[in-house]
Amino acid sequence: MVESASGVAPLTGAPQLTRKDFISDQDVRWCPGCGDYAILATVQRILPELGTPRENYVFVSGIGCSSRFPYYVNTYGLHTIHGRAPAIATGIKAANPKLEVWVVTGDGDALSIGGNHLIHALRRNVDIKILLFNNRIYGLTKGQYSPTSELGKKTKSSPHGSVDYPMNPLSLALGAEATFVARTVDTNPNHMKQVLMRAAHHKGSAFVEIFQNCIIFNDDAFKFVTDRQTRDDNAVILEQGKPLIFGKDKNKGIHLKGIKPEIVTIGENGVTEADLLVHNESEQEPHYAFLLSRFEAPQFPVPLGVFRAVSKPTYDQMLGQQIKTVMEKAPGDMKKLLHGPETWEVI
């Protein structure tokens, strides 16, 4: 019977890979100062640490500035069409579950034209990593508002301010019950590396929103979490099992009053750490992570880190398992198939 078409090289004896092995011969053509550079560098730094042979990686993208990414990574790659990368990645993974498939996408690509594919890849729990570079603007088409642009944003296509309410990428991913949901920011390489390593090791759909600065069309969109002066008050770093504490003086925290979160100050009005919400990324139901995903600055600190990480059988795994089970019972018999339920002979 038919075996999987691709032989996957064994790990043993493979030379230790370095960052250089993942740099392609193509000149990187993003604008100087673009946040994409930092993300590319971080990805190229973590890939050799994952122990997967280079030939088993496939980077898949759609259309947009971020989607040029695969050209710059020296692995297998597909730069496809607008919004469709999650579907194409699903096909790659369905055909060969041994491959490590990464999708690189942007806010327009993933949430606008490709919204449908994104939610369905996530709800199927296809074992792919999706990096959403969110810069809240259309860059490659030169500056129109995107599905994550804030209401009232003035752009080339919204000179009087956008009348579209923005979409929250993490709320969407959690609504689709993604098994791994995280957020990081392009200016913090260490945090990004930690989060991407976690995503890489997750078995199932991993969705990472990366706040990414577009220096040309939406500069400083994330200044509130990148600026040294304001970031500690505007962001809360999620750590498993630890209370949600933030602020320059590390004295602010999140308390849950009924089902409503509120900001409290430790040491004031008798508030202690014990009153704070404790982060648990492995909550089976996504409602806690969803609550976190609603935190927006300046009312609330924006959470950075892993919102949700739960384990569920993956699509590709179950697809393969069904076939394995059936084939073990009785491999296909071509003659039987051709003959169908009933035949007759003409002499």
Binding site: A5, S6, V58, V60, Y76, L78, T80, R84, A87, I88, A89, T90, G91, I92, K93, A94, A95, N96, L99, H117
Partner: peptide, 10 residues
């Protein structure tokens, strides 16, 4: 899209 991905995978 899935068919194309599958084909790329062999």
């Amino acid at each position: 899209g899935m068919a194309i991905g599958a084909s790329f995978s062999g």
